[in-house]
Computed example of a mutant assay.
Amino acid sequence: MTDIVAFIRERLDEDEQIARAAADQDDEGPVWQVRTVRDKGMYVLGEHQSAPSGRLGFEEDAQTRHVERHDPARALAQVAAIRHVVERLDVLQKDLEASLD
């Protein structure tokens, strides 16, 4: 089980690093929101943005909602939750192995 635990931990580290970088970029903040900008379409804006930067505009509502739903704040919360589960499972696995010895 240690191989899968190591693999999951590595992916969580990557996810955390990407989410933190996205949250810190241009001081946009970790919470993203969908806003409709007149004559420009739908954009995902960081909590500290008042106007789109032109980087995350989508014509499709589903695409915009998907990006908003997976903002850095959510990604970091998900990483923390999965880390907690992995740590607990790792402890349980070690306890089980010790009891069988």
Rank of each mutant, 00 (worst) to 15 (best):
E60D: 14
D101H: 05
W32V: 02
A81D: 12
A51E: 10
R55S: 05
E97P: 00
Q78P: 00
I4R: 12
E16T: 01
G46A: 03
A6Q: 10
H84K: 15
V44R: 07
D95T: 13
V91Q: 13
R69L: 10
V34W: 01
L89H: 08
L100F: 04
K94N: 07
V67I: 13
H48V: 05
G41M: 07
A75M: 15
D61V: 13
V5R: 09
Q78K: 10
Q63H: 12
V31S: 06
R74G: 04
V44K: 05
S50N: 12
A19F: 07
E59G: 15
H48C: 02
Q49A: 06
E97Q: 03
P52S: 07
D13M: 04
L100T: 02
R65Q: 14
K40Q: 14
V31H: 10
R65S: 05
Q17G: 01
L89D: 08
D95H: 10
G46P: 00
D101E: 09
S99W: 04
W32K: 03
L96K: 06
E47F: 01
R9E: 13
R11V: 10
V34T: 12
F7K: 14
G57S: 05
Y43G: 01
A23R: 03
L96C: 04
I4F: 11
Q63W: 09
H66Y: 13
D101I: 08
I82M: 09
E68I: 02
A19H: 04
A22M: 13
D61F: 11
D39K: 10
R65F: 09
Q78T: 15
S50G: 11
Q49N: 03
E60S: 09
L12E: 02
A22T: 07
D13N: 12
G54Q: 04
F7D: 11
D13K: 08
D13H: 06
A62W: 15
A51G: 00
Q78E: 15
V67D: 00
R88L: 12
R35T: 09
F7A: 14
A73H: 10
V5C: 03
E28I: 14
F58N: 02
M42Y: 10
D15H: 11
D13T: 10
A80Q: 12
W32C: 02
A75T: 15
A75L: 14
L100G: 00
V44I: 12
R83S: 12
E16K: 10
Y43L: 01
R11N: 07
D39T: 11
M42G: 04
R20V: 06
R20E: 07
D13F: 03
H48G: 00
A19P: 04
D61Y: 12
P30D: 10
V85G: 03
P72I: 06
A75K: 15
D15M: 15
V85P: 01
I4S: 08
V79M: 07
R83P: 03
D71G: 02
A62M: 09
A51Y: 07
Q49F: 03
Q25T: 12
E60G: 01
P52W: 06
V67M: 09
F7T: 13
R20C: 07
Q17S: 14
A23S: 11
H66F: 14
Q49V: 07
F58G: 00
P30K: 15
R11F: 05
I8V: 15
D13A: 15
Q17H: 11
A80Y: 08
A22I: 07
L45R: 03
V91P: 01
L96D: 01
D71F: 02
P72A: 08
E10Y: 06
E10D: 13
R11L: 13
R83A: 11
P52E: 04
V5P: 00
D101Q: 06
